[in-house]
Amino acid sequence: MPDINTSLTPAELGFGFPAEWFPHRATWLTFPHNEASWQGERLAKMRPQYLAFIKAITQGENVGIIANDENLKTFVSKELDQTGVDLSKIEFVIKPTNDAWCRDHGPSFVVNEKTKEKAIVNWGHNAWGGKYPPYDDDNRTPQAIANYLNLPVFNPGIIMEGGAVEFNGAGSLLTSKSCLLNLNRNPHLNQAQIEEILCQYYGVQQILWVEGGIVGDDTDGHIDDTTRFINEDTVIACVEHDKNDENYKILQTNLQMLKGMRLVNGKQLNIIEIPMPKAVIIDDFRTPGSYANFLICNAGVITPVFNNQNDQIAIDILEKAFPEKKIIPLEATEIIWGQGSFHCLSQQEPLV
């Protein structure tokens, strides 16, 4: 284990959380097996879309798969091979898991770019305010990955989810009040205390707040469904053009807040608006379908699409926004039934 004094904070030691476009060594996933998120036949129906996601990531980096047991590892290996995935790009960690949302329960990797050291921040996980027990196995995931990679671990001692935070790689962190200030996360902490912990453990200098999240999002409003940094001073921001839609008001509120923000260097944000898909309703349930839930990886920008009339509009906007990246649209119509998409399912490990 590297000799790092983890009694100090990452910020005190010169560590920070890299922006998502920082080169990756791997992307980590927790392979879905529990029917709590995709009930009955839906787990099997979503699996081809999930395997296509893995295949796309492996075009540019390794994929670390956290598998519940050896039987699941064997099954997954066979499925990946049949999908045409290069198995040399796959790493497995065998450990019990509860759910699939690795963005929220997985390891948060911080990097010291001067010393080229990497470490893991082990935030607490309580399944989005205790909504989906049990979650104790998922809560042990960061430490298991740290053991596998032989990395030191920082333990902030509070609840935090990766989908709740966005980074520009230049000192700014963007989040939502409806999630991080919710009393079902850290009721003993006020906003100023939460901001201080975020700065210390993510190595950022400022916290920027929007108001809330979209309909169907059971996380209390994760930022990765509404607003995403794509470079140091640019965000993709979801908007709803239908004034009668439930998302219209909250996304307009967020947009106005974004327009008033200033970055560490004093600059305003460059805001690229992207439409919401027309309501993605499955079995009379409005899912949190959003084009903002993309994953920036080495191979490109893996973007969820929903067989929706706004899919191509969103793809065109992202292609202009990422001129040096390939946009990789993948069907997420079965995945989104579980109330999340590609970004929610993944957590990147930076290359140092």
Rank of each mutant, 00 (worst) to 15 (best):
D242S: 04
G212K: 05
T234G: 15
C238S: 13
L181N: 11
I223Y: 07
K177Q: 15
Q200N: 10
C179S: 14
L208G: 09
Q206H: 03
P187A: 10
F167A: 12
H188I: 15
A170I: 09
N182C: 06
N182V: 09
I207T: 15
D225S: 05
Y202D: 05
R228H: 04
N244F: 00
E196C: 00
V204N: 08
L183G: 13
C179T: 14
L189H: 07
G212V: 09
A237Y: 09
L174N: 12
V235C: 10
G203T: 07
A237K: 05
D233S: 15
I194Q: 01
L181V: 06
E240Q: 14
T226Q: 11
I236W: 04
D225N: 12
E195M: 00
V235E: 04
I223E: 04
E211K: 15
I214T: 10
D218T: 13
E161W: 05
N190H: 03
I197W: 06
N190K: 14
N182R: 09
A164G: 13
T226D: 03
D242Q: 06
L181I: 01
V210P: 00
D217Q: 02
D233F: 12
L189T: 11
K243A: 13
R185L: 12
A164D: 14
N244V: 02
N184V: 09
V215N: 11
V235G: 06
P187Q: 08
G221V: 01
W209H: 03
G163N: 02
I214D: 09
G169I: 06
A170F: 03
D217C: 12
L198P: 05
V239K: 12
E240C: 12
G171A: 10
H188C: 02
Q200M: 10
V215P: 05
D217V: 03
G221Q: 08
S172I: 05
Y201L: 04
A164F: 01
D220A: 04
E232V: 06
Y201D: 11
A192H: 07
G171N: 00
Q205Y: 00
F167D: 01
S178N: 07
L181C: 14
G163W: 09
G212L: 11
G213F: 11
N184M: 14
A237E: 01
I236K: 13
I214V: 15
H188L: 06
E195P: 07
D233I: 01
E166S: 07
I236N: 10
C238I: 14
Q193K: 14
E166K: 08
D225H: 05
V165Q: 04
H241D: 13
D242E: 14
T219E: 05
A170H: 13
L180T: 14
A170Q: 11
Q191S: 08
N186Y: 07
G203E: 13
D218P: 00
Q191M: 13
I214H: 04
E166Y: 11
Q193C: 00
H241G: 12
I236Y: 02
C238N: 11
L208Q: 04
H222Y: 02
D220M: 11
V165H: 00
V210Q: 13
I223T: 04
V235A: 06
E161V: 02
I207C: 15
N168V: 07
D245Q: 10
G162C: 08
N184S: 08
L208P: 08
T226V: 15
N231T: 01
N244T: 11
G212Q: 03
